[in-house]
């Protein structure tokens, strides 16, 4: 039986390509939603701190979660809690690039999208089925 997996994201590029749970808000909104979902028993399948772009240099984040085993997954909780702590330690630079805003935003979204794609492709589809969820 293939496990159902889904994407939690605030990245429009991802939403255009994949079925996903849309978060309106910043990086921390995504992290907090993922933490709530972990509390409810879902497991994290892609690392929340993917990529070398520091939290708040980019606010775009996509994370793959999947059905759990019923009990709360302790390893997932630790991952997301560490991510939240890490996010809090980085300063929030004022990011206004003027005329380049859209282009640079698009670059950040593209990076997040690429990392997510790597992850989704890495999760063999014989094991996992990507679905649209509405939680």
């Amino acid at each position: 039986m293939r496990k159902k997996i889904f994407i939690v994201t605030n990245n429009k590029l991802v939403l255009m390509e994949y079925p996903a749970l849309e978060i309106t808000g910043d990086l921390d909104s995504v992290f907090l939603k993922v933490r709530d979902l972990v509390h409810e028993g879902y497991v994290i399948l892609t690392h929340p701190l993917s990529g070398s772009v520091k939290p708040h240099e980019t606010e775009f984040k996509s994370i793959v979660l999947g059905e759990g085993e019923g009990e709360m997954d302790y390893a997932s909780l630790q991952l997301i809690e560490n991510a939240i702590i890490t996010s809090a330690k980085f300063r929030r630079p004022n990011r206004d690039y003027g005329k380049d805003n859209e282009r640079i935003k698009n670059d950040f979204m593209t990076i997040d999208f690429s990392l997510l794609k790597t992850g989704v492709e890495g999760l063999g589809s014989t094991l996992y089925k990507l679905v649209k969820v509405d939680i």
């Binding site: 709530d36 509390h39 302790y74 909780l77």
Partner: peptide, 20 residues
Amino acid sequence: CTVVPISLTVGANRIIPTVA
């Protein structure tokens, strides 16, 4: 407690993860 990693950090020995 809800945040198990914190519980581990503060040195609890018997931990029950809670809801939210």
